[in-house]
Design a binder for these strands. Structure first.
Length: 438
RNA sequence: GGAGAGGUGACCGAGUGGCCGAAGGUGAACGCUUGGAAAGCGUUUGUACCCUAACCGGGUACCGGGGGUUCGAAUCCCCCCCUCUCCGCCA
């Protein structure tokens, strides 16, 4: 959520930002409600002031007449206060609702635009592999090598679920450990997080669990949801806390499952492991001071590049355009890996994303810092929050299977990962008994 | 899940209807004292929001959370949450 005082004082900036991001949001309504709220607060507080005076006046012993008069006055005040409070509550709820529709401010260097094609490509790293044969997509590879089973998962859990089998299991475990080790080298605290979070935390991070377009699985009767990313639980970790400035930045590397409903998304670009209801992800999350966030955002991007460079997966870096940022992000970079089996002759596919959400999430989550400024005075404010994908395992597996497939049908393991998998290659088709169904 | 005890400021701990934003202590900051330090003495020491040019001043709220009773609630009532102890269950 934005700072409403800032919105009140800079309506044109907000209007321009809404236009630039191609979202809807009514600044004038927010401002009007904000003013109504101030007036309502003043009304309530002055009535309460009178009530307190009235109560004070009744402390000692008084003539019965006087006492009766004061009690009558108090009763009247009580009713007026209740009415004023009801007004305030309804104004506040409406203000909150409208204010949450406003997206975060946008970094001045963010490319302007509404579509994916407006994203700015910053660089390409590694070279797209050239095959002496027609490369297959990861679904074909995985089925032939008995690595992924969608069919039985469909019966057991539903479509877009999957079992990993054989080497794919160790591949997932290896990727997790590989990513976690890199994060630890960069000063991140390794964490394994809950896969369920309370609604208020989801909302604080910027997810709307109950909306019609929600991508979130809700737990019945609990006020909780399955998390779509560890960003939720890592952000919630410091909810309602004030952190001493000298402890910042705090870097966390969280492992979790991610659950997404993905209602209505189908088609060839969602094939196989690309868009699934459950996957495993190692997520980076940073809490820092406002003046640190831009630098740390670059740092998160560098770590993502380090991870995929080390895996020798070709990728490109995108500076995401204003219309594609999503509500909380001030600036966002995506890494897209080359996926030779995607589309007709290979396509780029998103594998990581890192966002600087500035104070947009921390205001709602109430995560603050306190310190001493240069002038010796106390300083406090909302911390800046950043997140980034270290490894989204299912998509990393796609990239590895498709880029490292060999003419003989085997798949090489990226050298950097071999120490973690314990094998150098997933051998070509064996006669290992696969439980066929159907 | 069942039974009992308890949740007060940075911390400990008083407070059972108005004199409580909250005693006392600890810790911290500043000053005095000292050759220096300790001790001692004095002063200070929460957050959010509203009004305001103002982190000057004024006001409101906050004693786990939410409701209620009352002219008035940290104090009384109800619901919920959490912690501790015992029992049960379980990986």
């Amino acid at each position: 959520m934005l700072d409403l005082k800032f919105v009140r004082e800079n309506p044109d900036v907000i209007r321009e930002n809404i236009r630039n991001r191609h979202v809807s949001g009514d600044v004038d309504a927010v401002i009007s409600l904000y003013d109504q709220r101030s007036a309502a607060i003043q009304a309530v507080e002055s009535l309460r002031n009178e009530r307190n005076r009235n109560a004070q006046a009744m402390k000692g012993s008084l003539p019965q007449e006087e006492r009766t008069r004061l009690i009558e006055e108090g009763k009247s005040l009580k009713e007026q206060i209740a009415a004023a409070e009801a007004t305030l509550t309804s104004v506040e709820q409406e203000l909150q609702r409208r204010a949450e529709e406003l997206p975060n401010l946008t970094h001045p260097d963010t490319p302007s635009g509404a579509q994916e094609s407006d994203n700015r490509e910053l660089e390409q790293v590694g070279s797209v592999p050239v095959f002496s044969f027609t490369p297959r997509d990861h679904v074909a590879i995985a089925e032939e090598l008995d690595l992924v089973d969608f069919e039985n998962a469909g019966r057991v859990s539903g479509t877009k679920f999957y079992y990993l089998r054989n080497e794919a299991v160790y591949l997932e475990l290896a990727l997790i450990r590989f990513a976690m080790d890199i994060l630890q080298n960069h000063g991140f605290t390794p964490m394994i997080t809950p896969d369920i979070a309370r609604t208020e935390v989801l909302q604080g991070i910027g997810f709307n669990p109950r909306g019609p377009e929600s991508n979130i699985y809700n737990i019945e009767d609990e006020g909780t949801s399955l998390v779509g990313t560890a960003e939720i639980t890592l952000g919630g970790y410091y909810q309602n806390q004030t952190i001493p400035a000298e402890e910042l930045p705090i870097r966390m590397g969280g492992l979790s499952h991610c659950f997404r409903r993905e209602a209505g998304s189908a088609g060839q670009f969602s094939r196989g492991l690309y868009r699934v209801h459950q996957f495993t992800k190692v997520e980076m999350f940073v809490v820092c001071l406002p003046e640190q966030s831009e630098q740390i955002h670059r740092e998160l991007l560098e770590i993502e590049k380090e991870i995929f460079s080390s895996l020798e997966i070709p990728f490109r870096v995108l500076d995401i355009c204003s219309g594609d940022l999503g509500g909380p992000a001030f600036r966002k970079y995506d890494l897209e890996a080359w996926m030779p089996g995607r589309g007709t002759a290979g396509e780029w596919g998103e594998i990581t994303s890192t966002s600087n959400c500035t104070d947009f999430q921390s205001r709602r989550l109430n995560i603050r810092y306190s310190g001493t400024g240069a002038d010796g005075k106390k300083e406090r404010g909302y911390a800046h929050l950043l997140n980034g994908t270290a490894v989204a395992v299912s998509r990393a597996i796609i990239a590895i299977l498709e880029n490292f497939q060999q003419a003989d049908g085997s798949v090489l393991i990226p050298p950097a990962l071999q120490g973690y998998t314990g094998f150098e290659r997933i051998p070509a088709k064996r006669d290992a008994g696969k439980a066929k169904t159907g």
